[in-house]
């Protein structure tokens, strides 16, 4: 069982890295790109948990460690 976790800067938080990447894409001529936000992607391998237990544990890990909820949001998927 695996967990995929996405951590993204909150929409209310300025993301200077995303903005810089957006500027670079614009200068390369990609006029269709309206905005860029940069986040993090985690893959956890899990063992010995039911799906429900995994969801609870991954939620706790995301809240307590992987994301800083002052500036970031997260979502995750459990993959069998």
């Amino acid at each position: 069982m695996k967990a995929h976790i996405w951590v993204m800067p909150k929409l209310t938080v300025l993301d200077p890295q995303g903005k810089t990447i957006h500027n670079a894409l614009s200068s390369l001529g990609y006029k269709t790109v309206q905005s860029v936000r940069q986040g993090k992607f985690f893959v956890l391998e899990l063992e010995g948990l039911t799906r429900a237990e995994a969801e609870t544990q991954v939620g706790k890990i995301s809240r307590d460690v992987l994301a800083n909820l002052v500036i970031e949001d997260f979502r995750f998927e459990i993959i069998e």
Binding site: P9, V13, L14, P16, Q17, T20, N68, V70, I71
Partner: peptide, 17 residues
């Protein structure tokens, strides 16, 4: 201290990167 919640808020990457 911010990460530990002993102080409120967080720090972000410098605006100029």
């Amino acid at each position: 201290l911010l990460e530990a919640g002993l102080l409120p808020g967080a720090v972000l990457r410098n605006h100029g990167l």
